[in-house]
Structures are given as structure tokens and as C-alpha cells.
Write a protein that binds this DNA or RNA. Structure first.
Lengths: 392, 392
DNA sequence: AGGCGAATTGAATCGACTG
DNA sequence: CCAGTCGATTCAATTCGCC
């Protein structure tokens, strides 16, 4: 997914500066995925900052409350607009927040033309209790996952997510612990360096689900660099933006200490969509299934004959494995690979299994001929050594 | 909480009409709690088929159609403004939605001056899968719980919620099944009467958490009357508004068939009490054993009444199934699961058997909500606001 | 009656590619 | 942009039907 303009990007760096200002310097359509953990200043009286870093007066009359919300909305619209400009057409964005800010973010995402794909609930295994017994324990945060637009052909590594979840579809509620222990960055006094450092497991799932190796991942509020560190570990490229010098410095050191996983370790379960296409005719051609063979459906009620050109014949009807299956069942469509079977020693084997066998044989035949499809082996063990410069 | 104006209200009725128009006729500040399940503004592009080629019966009703986001926002602002006028100063509102609409609703709630107390995630035990493998399984819906304003002294039945949840604070993520089976209203052809009927267990928890007996509960989108029916069962007063004649008629019949629980059965746990050590409350909530049910010991000499929060009542004594068993037998301890029985067709069945039946229905995953070690509920009432719960 | 397997169903923004 | 074709894709809970 990463392409020409990528070389103009300050890749694999933590940039110090205001996120909107820094984003304005980056080229449009250059980023595959964005993960953002913006400040949620609502309800924190006196601490709300405008985009220009001035503090909003915290008074509790209605007018001022409105100005708080409006200021936060302006801030949100500013950085989300830039984010959308930087995102490739088929890229996706993740934004995490709590009930204080996530509703405003979600509404503005929609207003700007983003197309929400899921809202994901991070259920915390160890949340902080509600000390005063006045509310439910606030035990989750919400992430919004959205495509740049309604017609984006976004990436979702369905099989990888399914494999990660005991071979059932990954749900929209994720149960993960808070960032604690050795993972939590601390200052000289043993105090946590950042108040809301996100757990690596969360970013792991985010990146594995919606990015590919070598994709460019942007984090406009990089904090202590969890996104960047996980991107490096998973062999994605990253750009982090962080305003606070202490956080930026900590993030740079953290990323430097991170080692990319071996190439084969970051290859996730492939999606069938990405496998090279094998037409049924080639199976006939290569005699995995002989012309004149009889195929049938699972219940042995429908039968058809394989013709030499890879079509099936049933009485007067003739068509591709898909088309004939659809015709005979009066369905609008049909996957002939799984619909039709051959009888092998009394047992029905789907055509899909024959295809897999043919592909396995082909790959062993071609083992000497190198490159897999579309994965040019430019030396990417070269995460350009840590020039994680401080800009801005 | 209910007071003088309540008598002017059309109490315990389902009113047929447009929700905003009907609400305009009701007096200000007359309602203790609102539960609203507004249209979600789904934007479905075509029919959806399962992998087996059957068609999903989705929501295609006119009431869910809006021309654009702005129209949905206007609609939302209109009914929420009226809702706020009707709400008492210390009242609270619940609104349920999905990612299609909940962000707009949350933002408008805040704009209108409501004060969000929690966002609650309803995790569905049996959601519809994602058939095309293009997204995460959409396995939850979101409820926003908000007070009329920042300074409301709202009701939260903390101890009742804790009792209902294994003597641990109730979290913001609730694991409950969809409305199916006998609870689901059907038309003459056995088809679901309403596409989005909510489960009674959801309303049970909502009403027990945030209302008291005799409180006035308003549902502006009453549908098939789940809110009204549960309000009647729990001896709250209700006003339902429903525009569709078929739904309104069904709701009226449903409420008529509903019987209020005995007075002592709806009195939830007072503050500061001994809590049960087992999640007996979840059996009550899911109606495996109804509040007001009588349980007895094996020899039918001791009897007790089940209350909605999962405690037992015997005369002036009240406690968990274990504690009350111990009290009544003067024993130091007692396993309430095997001590107490329900009479099922003349045969005594131990609560343990009911628990086994319920567990057969519920995933074990739900148990994960336990209090972490070392995070005791000491009375640290001096932590600022509720924002303490956002670390992570 | 009971047990087992098949069938049904649920608030869903649910293709990709070629010509 | 449209039409045609290829072909990837489902989980939990309940209810029905058969033996």
C-alpha cells in the first residue's frame, strides 16, 4: 500500500511539535493508517487548551460551558481534517476516547466524511473502581475505526483476527489489561511518566487487524510512543508527533530499544482473497480432474459432467462451476469451489480441496523461482536506523 | 422522587402519537427517569445474505429513514430538548444506540446541558455475525446514562447494583442475551412483531439501578412496551409514547398482561448491607427466578422471598441466599445454593440446579469482571470527580 | 418422553475485478 | 460508470422435527 510519496515522508521518526502544524507539512494521501489518542479535556476545569495552547477559562456558567465544548470541537475538527488529508483513499483511522470526548469525535468524523466501520470497546480487565459509589465502574474505553470514505476499499485482516480469537470472528468488544508493570514507562522517581499510556496489546491488535507490513502508520498524539514501538516491532513504518518534550524523548528512546520481529513472524494468516487465482479450467488442463468426470453437490442430488474447457454440463445447461451451481439451485450466486464435489473412494471432496492440492504442488515445483507476488524484497531489514530526529 | 405534578400526568398508559408532539403536552419537571430507544438511522445499501444464501431480515422500516445527518440531528435535538424539559432536576435519562447514531446523540446531549454519568456497553451474548468477513462482529450496543445537568443529585442504587454483580461494583459493560424465545412478541404468522425489541433483562437493570418504586418512567419510543412492562413489574409508574398503531396496541396488551411484583419484592437493598457472595442476582435479572418468588429449605419449614437485587427476605430479616440461610438456622455458615429450593410442579429444585441451567446459556467469559487484588473499595471519597477512572 | 441433529435467526451502514 | 463474472463468507441460542 505504501508507494511513491513515502520517500518524502519523515519515516520512522518521532516529530516534536503541535500535531496540526506538523501534519500540515506532510504530503496528502501518504499514510495508510492513523491511530490517535487525543486529549479529552472535557470536564477538567481550567485545563482545557485551545489549539493555540492558550488555556480556556473554566467557569461553570452555561455560556462558558458552551465555549468549552465549542473549543474542543474546533480542535477536533482541525486535527481530524488534516488527518483525513494525509490518509490514502483506502486508509483507515482509529481514534480512542472515553465518554467525555468520544461522542464529539464520532460526530465530527461523520461530518467530515469518514465512514465508521466499527466502534470497538476496550474492556479493561483491571479498571480503577468508582471510589464514591455514585456511578458504574468506568471499565472500558471506546475506539472508533473508520475508513476515509464510504467507498474506501479498506484493509481488514479478517483471517488474522479470526485466528487470534480461537477461530471465531473477532467481536467488537476486546478484553485487555491496562498498561502496567514493566511495560509502563516511569520517571526517575518510579512514577508513571504518562497518565494514559496505552497497552501494547491494544496496538498490536489494532495494527495486525488493519495494516500490512511496510504500511505507514501515523500517530498524531504519540505520547510515550506505544504506536511507534508496536509499528516497528511489527515491521510497519511509523510517524509519531508529540508536543511534550519529555514524552517525545521517552518515545524516541523506547522506539530505539525496540527490535523488529523476524519477517516471517509478522506475516499474518493470509486472506483467501489475496491468494493467486486458479481458474477451474487449469485444474482440468493439468489433469487434477479429468474431462468427463462427474461432480455433485454435497447431498448427491445434483450431478454434472466436467467438460474439457472447464465448464460443467448438466442436461441442457452448461456454465462455469459458479454459474451452473447458481442456475441449478435458483440462487443469485454460488461459490462453485465449495458447492461441487468429486467422489474419491466413496468420500466427497470439494473442488476447493483439489485446488489447494494443486497449489501445494505448484509451489513445490517453483521453489527455486523466488519472489512471492507483490512483495518486492527491497531490503527492509533496513528500518532506516534510528534517526528519530527531533523536529519542530 | 415523584411529587405533586405526577397526578396531572397520564400515568401507566401507552400514548399513541408522535413523541415530540405528545411530550409537548406534558408538564415540565414531571418525570424521574427516561429510557429512549430512538431510531438508529441505519443506512443499508442492499440486501444482505448469509453464506448459505438465506436473506437477513433487516431493519427497513420507514421510521428509520432520514434524508441525511442534519435531518437526524434536528430530529434528535427536538426530542431530547422536550425530554430535558420533562425531566425533574435530579432525574436521569438513558439513550441506547449503535455507532450509526450514538455519537450524534451523545454530542447533542452534551450540547443541551445534560451531564453524562456513564456510557454503558450492552455486550450481546448472541450477536449476528459479520457474514462477509469485512469488519469485526458488531457485538454490542451503547447506552448513555446522563443527568439533567451537572449539579443534579441523581439516583444511583449502588448497593443494589453491587448485590446484582457478585458483590463487586457493577461495571460499565453488561453481558446480556438478545430478546428471543417466548419473550419476543410475534404476529399471527410467527414473525417478529418489532425488529428491535429489547430484552427485559436490560430494562430490569436500568430501572433497578436508577429509579425507586413509584418513580415515573417515560419511554418516548415505546415500541412493544418493554420499558412499560418492566416498570409495571417493578412497581414504577410509566408513560409510553408510540407512533405506530400496531406497536402501541401490542404494548398495551403486553402491559395489561404484566403483574406487579409484591411490594416487598421490589424494595431493593438499602445502602450498607451485607452482600451475597455469589451472582445469584444474575439469575433474578434474567428471570430464571422471578423477584417475589418463594424459596424454601428442603424440609419446607423455612420460607423466603426473592428480591430484585438477588437478596432473600424472611420477615424482618434480609440477606444473601447464604447469609439468610445461616441466620435462620443459627448456623455459622450456609451454602445457599444447596440450602434453598424452588417448588417446580410440586418438586423441590435447589437453586444450584437453576444456576446450572443458566450457565448452560451463558458464556464463561462474563465472569471476568472481578475486582482486582489490592484495589479495595476503601472510602476514598475525596478523589476529584469521576475522572479518576480514566487512566490507562 | 427424551435425546439428538437440523433449521432458524438476530439494529448490518457486510465485494472485487475486468472489460 | 455499468454490466458481467468470479467467489469469499456465520455464531450463539433457541426451536423444530425425527426417532
Amino acid at each position: 500500500m505504501s508507494g511513491a510519496t513515502a520517500m518524502e515522508l519523515p519515516l520512522d521518526q518521532i516529530l516534536r511539535g503541535e500535531c496540526v502544524e506538523v501534519m500540515r507539512m506532510l504530503p496528502s494521501g501518504s499514510v495508510d493508517c492513523i491511530f490517535a489518542d487525543p486529549p479529552y479535556n472535557l470536564q477538567l476545569r481550567g485545563e482545557l487548551r485551545r489549539p493555540d495552547d492558550t488555556v480556556v477559562d473554566g467557569v461553570d456558567d452555561d455560556w462558558d460551558k458552551f465555549s468549552d465544548l465549542a473549543a474542543y470541537d474546533r480542535f477536533t475538527r482541525d486535527w481530524l481534517s488534516e488527518a483525513r488529508r494525509l490518509l490514502r483513499k483506502d486508509g483507515t483511522i482509529w481514534v480512542i476516547g472515553s465518554y467525555h470526548n468520544i461522542f464529539r469525535i464520532g460526530a465530527i468524523l461523520q461530518d467530515l466524511g469518514f465512514w465508521i466501520l466499527n466502534d470497538i470497546v476496550w474492556r479493561k480487565s483491571n479498571p480503577m473502581p468508582n471510589f464514591r459509589g455514585r456511578r458504574f465502574t468506568n471499565a472500558h474505553e471506546t475506539m472508533i475505526w473508520a475508513a476515509r470514505g464510504q467507498d474506501s476499499r479498506y484493509r481488514f485482516n479478517y483471517q488474522a483476527m479470526k485466528a487470534l480469537n480461537d477461530d471465531v470472528q473477532m467481536r467488537s468488544d476486546w478484553y485487555l489489561p491496562l498498561c502496567t508493570g514493566g511495560e509502563r514507562l516511569r520517571n526517575g522517581h518510579g512514577l508513571k511518566l504518562h497518565p494514559t499510556q496505552k497497552p501494547e496489546s491494544l496496538l498490536h491488535r489494532v495494527l495486525v487487524s488493519s495494516t500490512a507490513a511496510d504500511d505507514v502508520v501515523l500517530d498524531p498524539f504519540a505520547g510515550t510512543g506505544t504506536t511507534a514501538a508496536m509499528a516497528k516491532r511489527l515491521r510497519r513504518r511509523f510517524i509519531g508527533i508529540e508536543r511534550h518534550p519529555d514524552y517525545a524523548e521517552a518515545a524516541i528512546g523506547r522506539v530505539r530499544r525496540e527490535t523488529p520481529l523476524p519477517h516471517d513472524a509478522v506475516a499474518t494468516t493470509p486472506m483467501k482473497r489475496e491468494a493467486p487465482r486458479v481458474p477451474f479450467g487449469s485444474l482440468v488442463e493439468r489433469n487434477f480432474i479429468a474431462p468427463g468426470s462427474i461432480v455433485c453437490d454435497k447431498s448427491r442430488r445434483l450431478f454434472a459432467t466436467v467438460s474439457p474447457d472447464g465448464t460443467l454440463i448438466c442436461g441442457a445447461k452448461r456454465g462455469s462451476i459458479h454459474k451452473l451451481g447458481a442456475m441449478l439451485t435458483n440462487a443469485p450466486s454460488c461459490n462453485g469451489w465449495t458447492f461441487w464435489h468429486v467422489d474419491r473412494d466413496g468420500e466427497l471432496v470439494p473442488l476447493d480441496a483439489l485446488r489447494a492440492e494443486s497449489q501445494a504442488q505448484e509451489s513445490t515445483e517453483n521453489v527455486a523461482a523466488a519472489q512471492p507476488e507483490g512483495q518486492e524484497m527491497t531490503d527492509i531489514s533496513d528500518l532506516p536506523n534510528e534517526r528519530s530526529a527531533i523536529a519542530g
